[in-house]
Amino acid sequence: MGLISNRVERSEIKPGDHIYTYRAVFTYSHHGIFVGGSKVVHFTPRNANSSTEASSNSYEEIYNLPSSCPTFPDCGFRQPESGVVLTCLDCFLKNGSLYCFEYGVTPSVFLAKVRGGTCTTAPSDPPETVIHRAMYLLQNGFGNYDVFQNNCEDFAMYCKTGVLIVDTAGVGRSGQASSVIGAPLAALISSPLKLLMPSPIGVATVTAGMYCMSRYATDIGVRSDVIKVAVEDLAVNLGWGPGGEEEVVDDGVSEQQIAR
């Protein structure tokens, strides 16, 4: 992967990799965990409120949920009322390009990649741990989808690191969300500098620098408000379900779904 783009070929990804693809002419990216066997586990909003065929089709198109897949019969599998879904790689990409999220990058590399949602300074756990988390959450869910606090990138980053944000009222792990918030904030803070810096280039440079630093400050690799949580204890920490307890599933079922 290069400094400008994290684009990779299918032959380069390995089970346990955090992959993503861009949607709506690079407006946003959709993230998931490649679990092997041409299968991807990813997180989407639950389709509980779709009451019409049109809205259902729109939901499937936006969030990469196949209405039918000629290759894998179990493509699109998910538990009732859960947003975590298992699809094949083709249905995940929807003809888009394939990118691989980077972990354990240096601060200089992180700051050089201006667009958020491509890398983190946090290290990744071993692939077998990552896959276990993804398959466990496929059976038990990942709570309610939230664009800024609990989205597809947050899901993939939790699977890779096991890290949660302590302050649930703040911004989640997502680099995309940090970028959306950081850009306007940087512009707002740097606007008074226009009175002191007559050069537009100087103002733009300062604004870009503030934007990059705001992204870096929210990266899970440097934040102090994060904790490591085992996937089996995730429901208790986030208060999901009655009594905060979730059912532990048999790993054998997960392995069969990957192998199909």
Rank of each mutant, 00 (worst) to 15 (best):
E61A: 14
I62P: 00
Y63D: 06
Y63W: 15
N64K: 08
N64M: 06
L65Y: 10
L65R: 10
L65I: 14
L65A: 10
P66G: 00
P70R: 07
T71S: 14
T71K: 15
F72P: 01
F72S: 05
F72M: 00
P73K: 08
P73N: 10
D74K: 11
D74L: 14
D74S: 12
C75A: 05
C75G: 11
G76Y: 13
F77D: 02
Q79E: 14
Q79L: 15
Q79P: 05
P80L: 05
P80A: 07
E81W: 05
S82L: 12
S82M: 11
G83V: 01
G83S: 09
G83M: 11
V84H: 05
V84E: 10
V85Y: 04
V85H: 09
T87V: 15
T87N: 04
C88I: 05
L89S: 04
L89A: 07
D90W: 03
D90S: 13
D90Q: 07
D90E: 13
F92V: 06
F92Q: 00
L93M: 14
L93H: 07
K94D: 15
N95Y: 08
N95D: 15
N95K: 14
S97H: 14
S97V: 09
S97D: 15
C100F: 01
C100T: 04
F101D: 12
F101R: 04
F101P: 10
E102V: 01
E102H: 07
E102Q: 15
E102N: 03
Y103A: 03
Y103D: 08
G104Y: 03
G104H: 05
G104T: 03
V105Q: 04
V105G: 10
T106P: 00
P107K: 10
P107D: 07
S108K: 03
S108V: 01
F110A: 02
L111F: 04
A112P: 02
A112S: 15
V114H: 00
V114G: 02
V114E: 03
G117M: 13
G117K: 13
G117Q: 09
T118G: 00
T118A: 02
C119Y: 02
C119S: 09
T120H: 06
T121H: 02
A122H: 08
P123D: 08
S124H: 10
S124I: 12
D125F: 02
P126F: 12
P126L: 13
P126Q: 13
P127Q: 07
P127N: 13
E128R: 09
E128K: 10
T129F: 06
T129G: 02
T129R: 11
T129S: 10
V130P: 12
V130G: 09
V130I: 15
V130S: 14
I131P: 02
H132T: 06
H132C: 05
R133Q: 11
A134I: 13
A134G: 13
M135S: 08
M135V: 12
Y136V: 08
L138R: 01
Q139G: 13
Q139I: 03
N140Q: 15
N140A: 15
F142E: 09
G143Y: 03
N144H: 07
N144L: 07
N144T: 12
N144S: 09
Y145C: 04
F148W: 05
N150Q: 06
N151H: 00
N151D: 03
N151M: 04
C152V: 11
C152I: 08
E153T: 00
D154W: 07
A156H: 01
A156Y: 05
